[in-house]
Computed example of a mutant assay.
Amino acid sequence: MNFVHPQSLWALIPAAAIIAAAVLTRRTILARLHVIGADTVERQVRLFLMDICMALFMILIITAAADPRGRRNPNAGNNTNLDTAVLFDVSRSMLTEDVPPNRLKAGIAALGQVIQALEGSRFSLIPFKGDAKILVPMTEDIVMLRLWMDRLGPNIFSSTGTNLEASLRTAMKSFPEGTAQRKIILLITDGEALSGNINRISRDLLVEGITVYAAATGTEEGGPIPSGNGSYVSDKSGSPAVSRADFRTMEQLAEDTGGSVYNLSRADAVSRLVDAIVSEQNFSSRRSSFVGLYQYRLYLFPALLMLFFYLCIRIWPWRK
């Protein structure tokens, strides 16, 4: 289960403080009533049940406000094709040659194999660096897609950095509205210096039923970054800057959305990636697809029920 507004759960902390203060106040009141002989077992039971109902009401209503979302299994049908948004990192670190011939070309080669295997599917192409742009809208025109694939490189954008959250939101916009196609994002990146709120975008992807598969280019040992003029990018000390792949963000994103990560430095990575995405196209029954099932009602109704019980206990006539 995931929450669309997890920040609402922080309200449980003051709620717990209020509940604790109420319990202490009840004890003080009962102690004073006991002194004057007005304390009864019925009164103690009523106050105890009222505290329980109010505590449960506050916990349930706060949980409902966080908007919990669940998942369900895909429904069988004629929907056997796939919409794939290809989010391709074109930062300069992708020119590093720790994966031959370099990270960028290894990613393009892997994408070519995926396209070949997914006959009948549609693709969009979104290169990203500091910015992201839908270079090829969602289309079945593979010729156009391959034409732009060959032009990918750091010179597409002049901005620096790699804001993954903003780029994923751009990729989400490339999916046509009102279609029943299954949706995945194929993220091709070395994972270095990715920025943005990954938890937030993961929740949004989950709600939209979009799975992320990542083709990780590069190695943890890394290598120097070519500057394009026969030399290498230097760090502050003047030595060649070493770019190292970072798989942690990709692994978190894939895990949160039901996908997986494939390291292109391994010999079988591309074939495994292709098999995984083909299973999406074939509507594999072995895996569940995440969709945004609203579950707040499962908490809202019991919360209202607790409030009703609280009022009944409080209003019901006392036994003479």
Rank of each mutant, 00 (worst) to 15 (best):
D131Q: 12
A16N: 04
G258C: 12
V136A: 09
T84Q: 07
D150W: 05
K173S: 12
V90C: 00
P127Q: 02
I313Q: 06
R169F: 15
S285K: 05
A76N: 06
R122H: 13
L111K: 00
S202H: 01
I62D: 00
E119R: 05
L87T: 04
G70H: 03
N155A: 14
E97G: 07
M172N: 05
S231G: 13
P302I: 01
I29G: 03
N75G: 11
I277T: 02
I277E: 11
V23H: 07
D246E: 12
R71V: 11
R92S: 10
P137L: 11
I210H: 03
D204I: 08
L104D: 08
V270D: 09
A241V: 08
I156A: 00
L253P: 00
V35I: 13
S159H: 05
S234L: 11
T63D: 04
I62V: 05
A11S: 14
I19W: 12
A193V: 08
L82M: 04
S8N: 13
P317F: 11
F175L: 04
R103V: 12
D98A: 09
L152E: 02
A171E: 01
M94K: 00
P302K: 03
E42V: 13
G107V: 05
L273A: 11
N155M: 09
R146K: 11
D51G: 15
A193C: 05
L30D: 11
I198F: 08
A15P: 03
T257G: 04
A66N: 00
L164C: 01
F290H: 07
L145V: 10
T25Q: 05
A166F: 15
I198Q: 04
G120N: 02
R319F: 10
A109G: 13
G161E: 01
A180D: 14
A276C: 09
V242D: 01
I18P: 00
A38S: 14
I156G: 00
L273I: 08
T28R: 06
A254Y: 06
G107P: 09
L168T: 04
I62E: 01
D83N: 13
L194I: 14
S279P: 08
K133D: 11
V90Q: 01
A117S: 13
A20Y: 12
I19E: 02
A193Q: 09
M138T: 11
L194C: 01
L118G: 09
V41R: 06
V136P: 03
P6S: 10
